[in-house]
Design a binder for these strands. Structure first.
Lengths: 104, 104
DNA sequence: AACGGTACTGTATATAGCAAGGTACTGTAA
DNA sequence: TTACAGTACCTTGCTATATACAGTACCGTT
């Protein structure tokens, strides 16, 4: 799997998954990695970035299957970012398709 | 335009454009930038990489509109790389669509 | 002769994903 | 009761790629 393709897209995936429900880091890793190869060392720094930029907030909740889980919740600016990134992504794919001659 | 989305995809675009005809760097920049914002400083290092890795060869041809043009031509391994990258790209987009919930 | 367009090159910087490592809790099997 | 696998979190250093910025040089037109 080409690493470069993932750049920026994983952020969009995380934001989209957080749109419906709050989720914890490990859960995001396992959900995304069902389709796209991904490592924890990618997601945790990404989540930290999102929090630092005010796009998510976090809260802890205990689990009976291991250590407490840190849940991530989209903020208003996070929701806005998600919809903007979504538009950009589909626009981008469309333009790439034109260049690759797959537009028709 | 999200910079990160472009990572890796520009290479695919360049390879695809070279599949039909030999092209020179400036021409590639202007063709691609009709759809995707791109600068010369991006394409030339990319072309040098492709040449260094044996995916393209080059030859000079004079122009009556400026300095001589350096044409890039796909090698066999470049053609192979192009078709592999193409498959990877469309597979990747499909998987992202599943995560984004746009698969159906 | 000066300018804008064509064409190529090089350096320094920012960013994101990854491998590899670590901590710590829980339940199960040897 | 000890060892292990699974869950859950986090950090550091590395690499690849795109970009900004700067520079060189050729051509035709004004």
């Amino acid at each position: 799997m080409n690493i470069q393709f993932k750049k920026g897209v994983l952020e969009l995936c995380v934001l989209t998954l957080l749109q419906n429900d709050d989720r914890y880091g490990y859960e995001l890793v396992s959900r995304i990695s069902q389709n796209i190869e991904i490592s924890e060392g990618t997601i945790y720094p990404l989540l930290r970035r999102l929090q630092k930029d005010g796009n998510v907030t976090t809260y802890l909740r205990e689990s009976n299957e291991g250590p407490p889980r840190k849940y991530y919740k989209l903020t208003e600016s996070g929701k806005k970012m998600c919809s903007e990134l979504t538009d950009e992504w589909f626009g981008f794919v469309k333009k790439v398709n034109i260049i690759l001659g797959r537009s028709k």
